[in-house]
C-alpha cells in the first residue's frame, strides 16, 4: 500500500497546477523511492517529468510499485478543497480503484477526506538519455517568465542563443523584433537573483513560446529555473524542489529555417 504525507498541500497543488494544462491523464508511479510522473502533451512536442522523492514526504511508505492513473482536472477539483498549509496524505491500496486524499488543518481539528476514481492509463514511457549539455543557465524563475511573456507579445517562437557573451532571447514578429540579453550575475544578498551561465560550446536553438509560457506556471515552485541546451536536442527546463525532488519540462526544438 501507499501512504505518503506531505507537510504542506501547497506543493502538490502547485505541481498539478503547473502541468494540468499540458497533460490531462497521467500515471503517478509510486515506489519506495517516491512518486514519479512522466507524460507528453497531446501534440508530442513537450514532455513533463516530475519526481517527488520519498524524502519529500514524512512518513512515506510504498511496499510495491503502484501506478495511480489520475485525471488532473479531477485532481485539481479535489485539491481546491485543501488549504495551502494543510497536511496532505495520499493513500492507496496495492491494486487500487481509488486514491484517497486526506487534508488536515494544523490549526483546527478539521479533517477532510476525498477519494478520486482511478483510470487505466496506457501511457508511453520514454527513456531520457543522460545528456552533457553545451549550455546550462540558472536564472530567477520570475525573470524567465517575464522574458517569455514579453516576447510572446511579438512572436510565437524565441531563439535562445548562448555564447560567452551571455544568453540572448530573441524573437521576430509582424510588428517588429525584440531581444533580452542576460549576463552572468551574482547577488550576494539575494542568491535567488543570480544568473549563472555554464557554457562548453555556443548554442542557438528556437522554441515555441506558447510551451515555454506554459512551463513558467511552475515559477512559484522555485525561485530559480535551470535551462539546459545543446544543439539539436530538446531544451530542459528544470524547477528544483526540496529533497532532490524536481519538476522538469522537455521541449523539442523548432527545426529548419
Amino acid at each position: 500500500m501507499l501512504e505518503a504525507r506531505l507537510e504542506q498541500a501547497n506543493l502538490l497543488k502547485k505541481v498539478v497546477d503547473a502541468i494540468k494544462d499540458l497533460v490531462q491523464d497521467c500515471n503517478f508511479d509510486c515506489n519506495d523511492s517516491g512518486i514519479a510522473l512522466q507524460a507528453m502533451d497531446n501534440s508530442h512536442v513537450a514532455l513533463v517529468s516530475m519526481m517527488l522523492k520519498s524524502e519529500s514526504f514524512s512518513p512515506f511508505r510504498c511496499d510495491r510499485n503502484i501506478a495511480l492513473g489520475i485525471n488532473l482536472t479531477s485532481l485539481t477539483k479535489v485539491l481546491r478543497a485543501a488549504q495551502n498549509e494543510d497536511i496532505l496524505t495520499l493513500k492507496a491500496e496495492d491494486a487500487p480503484d481509488v486514491v484517497n486524499l486526506v487534508f488536515e488543518s494544523a490549526e483546527s481539528d478539521r479533517i477532510s477526506e476525498y477519494d478520486i476514481k482511478l483510470m487505466d492509463i496506457d501511457q508511453e514511457h520514454l527513456g531520457i538519455p543522460e545528456t552533457e549539455y553545451a549550455a546550462t543557465i540558472s536564472m530567477p524563475s520570475a525573470e524567465f517568465q517575464r522574458i517569455c511573456r514579453d516576447l510572446m507579445a511579438l512572436s510565437e517562437s524565441v531563439s535562445i542563443e548562448c555564447s560567452k557573451e551571455g544568453v540572448k532571447f530573441a524573437c521576430q514578429g509582424d510588428i517588429g523584433s525584440g531581444s533580452v540579453t542576460l549576463r552572468s550575475h551574482t547577488n550576494v544578498d539575494k542568491p535567488e537573483m543570480n544568473v549563472e551561465i555554464d557554457l562548453t560550446e555556443p548554442v542557438s536553438l528556437t522554441f515555441s513560446l506558447k510551451y515555454l509560457v506554459g512551463f513558467c506556471k511552475a515559477s512559484s515552485l522555485s525561485g530559480q529555473v535551470k535551462l539546459c541546451l545543446s544543439n539539436e536536442v530538446p531544451l530542459l527546463v528544470e524547477y528544483a524542489l526540496a529533497n532532490n525532488s524536481y519538476l522538469r519540462f522537455y521541449l523539442a526544438p523548432k527545426i529548419g529555417d
Partner: peptide, 14 residues
C-alpha cells in the same frame, strides 16, 4: 516556415 519537431524523435522507448 519553421517546423516543430516531435519530442518522441529524441527520446527512446523504455
Amino acid at each position: 516556415p519553421i517546423g516543430q519537431g516531435s519530442i518522441k524523435s529524441f527520446f527512446t522507448h523504455s
